Amino acid sequence: GEEMDTAEIARQVKEQLIKHNIGQRIFGHYVLGLSQGSVSEILARPKPWNKLTVRGKEPFHKMKQFLSDEQNILALRSIQGR
């Protein structure tokens, strides 16, 4: 696969979550399948791509996919709003 700019992906995700008022817990649960603790760690201190294991890269693939389609963001927003 291609190398990803993990810091940039994390920054964009944080931006979207704040902009749409989506909590990290909801994002972690529905998008990444991770706990809030793992999510906040990944978003606060993303490791460089070449330092990640295959498993460590997974959340970034999912985040990139999440960012690529605004429908994903809107869907999360409606879950959050319940």
Results as ranks from 00 to 15, higher is better:
G1Q: 11
G1F: 09
E2N: 12
E2R: 07
E2P: 04
E2M: 10
E2K: 09
E2T: 09
E3T: 11
E3W: 12
E3R: 08
E3C: 08
E3N: 09
M4W: 07
D5R: 03
D5V: 03
D5F: 02
D5Q: 07
D5T: 13
T6K: 01
T6I: 00
A7Y: 10
E8R: 08
E8I: 07
E8A: 09
E8D: 12
A10G: 03
A10E: 01
A10W: 02
R11N: 07
R11K: 15
R11V: 05
R11C: 05
R11E: 07
V13H: 03
V13I: 09
V13E: 03
V13D: 04
K14S: 15
E15I: 13
E15Y: 10
E15H: 15
E15F: 05
E15G: 05
E15N: 05
E15V: 07
L17Q: 03
L17M: 04
I18T: 14
I18K: 15
I18R: 14
I18M: 13
I18Y: 13
I18G: 09
K19A: 08
K19N: 07
K19V: 06
K19P: 02
K19Y: 06
K19L: 07
H20N: 07
N21S: 10
N21H: 13
N21P: 02
N21I: 00
I22D: 00
I22P: 02
I22G: 01
I22E: 02
G23Y: 09
Q24M: 12
Q24H: 13
R25A: 15
R25L: 07
I26T: 13
F27K: 00
F27S: 01
G28K: 02
H29K: 13
H29Q: 14
H29R: 11
H29M: 11
Y30M: 09
Y30T: 08
Y30G: 03
Y30Q: 10
V31M: 04
V31Q: 01
V31A: 03
V31G: 02
L32Y: 00
L32S: 01
L32K: 00
G33F: 01
G33H: 09
L34T: 07
L34Q: 08
S35D: 15
S35G: 12
S35Y: 05
Q36S: 13
Q36I: 11
G37Y: 12
G37K: 15
G37C: 12
S38I: 13
S38M: 15
S38G: 11
V39Y: 03
V39M: 06
S40M: 11
S40Q: 13
E41P: 02
E41Y: 04
E41I: 04
E41F: 02
E41V: 04
E41M: 05
I42K: 02
I42T: 05
I42F: 06
I42E: 02
L43T: 00
L43Y: 02
A44L: 12
A44T: 14
A44E: 15
R45N: 13
R45C: 13
R45D: 12
P46Y: 03
P46W: 05
P46L: 05
K47G: 06
K47W: 05
P48F: 03
W49K: 01
W49C: 13
N50T: 08
N50S: 15
N50K: 10
N50P: 13
K51G: 07
L52D: 00
L52N: 00
L52F: 00
L52K: 00
L52P: 00
L52E: 00
L52C: 04
T53N: 10
T53K: 02
T53F: 03
T53Q: 05
V54L: 14
V54D: 14
V54G: 11
R55K: 15
R55S: 13
G56L: 10
G56V: 05
G56R: 02
G56W: 06
G56T: 05
K57H: 04
K57L: 06
K57V: 04
K57C: 04
E58N: 06
E58T: 06
E58Y: 08
E58M: 08
P59H: 14
P59R: 13
P59I: 15
P59Q: 15
P59M: 15
P59F: 14
P59K: 12
F60A: 00
F60Y: 13
H61E: 13
H61M: 13
K62Q: 08
K62P: 00
K62D: 01
K62M: 07
M63W: 00
M63S: 01
M63G: 00
M63P: 01
K64N: 07
K64I: 13
Q65K: 10
Q65E: 14
Q65N: 13
F66G: 00
F66E: 01
F66T: 00
L67G: 01
L67A: 02
S68T: 09
S68G: 08
S68M: 10
S68N: 09
D69H: 07
D69A: 08
D69T: 07
D69W: 04
E70N: 10
E70L: 05
E70I: 07
E70F: 07
E70G: 09
Q71V: 07
Q71R: 11
Q71E: 14
Q71M: 08
Q71H: 08
Q71I: 07
N72V: 05
N72P: 04
N72I: 06
N72S: 12
I73D: 02
L74M: 10
L74F: 12
A75C: 09
A75V: 09
A75P: 05
A75E: 15
L76N: 01
L76G: 01
R77C: 12
R77E: 13
R77W: 05
R77I: 09
R77G: 10
S78Q: 15
S78W: 07
S78V: 08
S78F: 07
I79Q: 13
Q80V: 13
G81H: 14
G81W: 10
G81Y: 08
G81E: 15
G81K: 11
R82E: 14
R82F: 06
R82L: 11
